[in-house]
Design a protein around this nucleic acid. Structure first.
Lengths: 225, 225
DNA sequence: GAGTGGTCTAGACCACGTT
DNA sequence: ACGTGGTCTAGACCACTCG
């Protein structure tokens, strides 16, 4: 036996999946066994393995179906190279401003004086089309160079700073600002918890200050336990 | 049949593992089948499942053995290199456990069944000597391989998963569990906000579930604005 | 009632190690 | 030669769903 039979069945099923669409049924285990002239248990082993890999799924006693996935990774192939997940980020607004009125706490957190210029970025985080949160990202304008502004690459990857720097978090119960209600697709003035993040460089210098408003629908509060 | 036989075998083997040490051999499939008076294929199904969960491992045609790991030494580790910056993390506890009582929500979040084996890591985050938060990190034991456990490197860098995967956050007002009061150096039963994180791979498969209890002293609540 | 997946049996042969 | 895991068979009964 050059190749185990159940691996042949897996190949057969993978080909079948390519021809089929998401949620299409595949033949029953008994049917496949008869078609390929082998035992049901052998077929079953292959189907179970593909179910574990989320290529197929079972639905009760109704049958087995093709999983809805973008790209079916080949089974015995190297890494599937899952490029982009489903999370997305959208820049809503970006500016630098001077002598702001309502951001004294931000300036204090960044250890800036009242007349330092701030950079501000407002970003919407989505999971698919579901809005998760709005982030207000502040930094001293000095920290934001032209390359960053051009590509927004570095600033968009906040986790880089979160990972490398010193991070301090605070959770603040607030009312959702009306201007974000539409973005988050919730009603005006919903009660939310805002997460304030203070991120410093490894040397301890304030670098970013982020206020995140979570969508209370997709990040719901639960009651006390 | 109240409980499938192969689940009985899993129970039997889990108990057996508790008595044995790492790398001890377990009886052969045929032997177990004879002892428990059931078919070898039934025993085999149980053994295969525990191998997938890294509770057991096979070694060629020599036999099946208890995986090194299980109940890891509790309590703290060597100081995890507070090189850059002042933030540090300390492993408090680590184990894999079966049939847990209080973690049904975690199992549901990870889309596991009640009898799947969970991996649990409890970690204290410090800023200098100031405790910031305690994280309870859960994953399916299947996801945790020996390399990860040896170094704890990959699992310790949660931001890698947070960056590459799909992340969903929820904020839950709770009372701080008494067992963490000392770690966080706050009084018993403080009101805190717990952050629940659900991290999935880019393909959408649940991977990590993290509950973070913040120290209300260093992450204080502010009043409504 | 017919079809599905879920479980289980009592055998079998193989390739591969150890003794 | 013997024991191990790896594979495979040809049946079987069950609980469940659907028409």
């Amino acid at each position: 036996m050059s190749q185990p039979k159940y691996l042949q069945v897996i190949d057969y099923l993978m080909d079948l999946c390519k021809e089929k669409s998401a949620n299409d049924p595949i033949p029953s285990e008994r049917e496949i066994a008869q078609n390929l002239d082998m035992s049901r248990m052998t077929v079953r082993k292959a189907v179970e393995e593909l179910c574990r890999k989320n290529i197929l799924y079972r639905d009760g006693n109704k049958g087995t179906f093709v999983s809805p996935r973008k790209q079916q990774p080949a089974v015995s192939q190297p890494a599937p190279a899952a490029k982009n997940g489903v999370t997305r980020q959208r820049i809503i607004y970006m500016d630098t401003f001077y002598s702001p009125d309502n951001v004294r706490p931000v300036q204090r957190a960044l250890e800036l004086s009242d007349n330092d210029v701030l950079f501000r970025l407002i970003r919407l985080n989505l999971h698919g089309d579901t809005p998760l949160s709005v982030e207000e990202i502040y930094s001293s304008a000095e920290n934001v160079n032209d390359e960053d502004l051009g590509s927004l690459g570095a600033l968009s990857d906040l986790n880089k700073y979160r990972r490398e720097g010193i991070r301090r978090t605070r959770l603040v119960p607030v009312m959702l600002p009306g201007k974000y209600a539409k973005l988050l697709e919730v009603k005006l003035e919903s009660p939310v918890i805002r997460q304030d993040e203070e991120i410093r460089t490894a040397s301890g210098k304030p670098f970013l200050y982020i206020q995140t408003y979570f969508n209370p629908e997709t990040s719901p509060f639960s009651s006390f336990e």
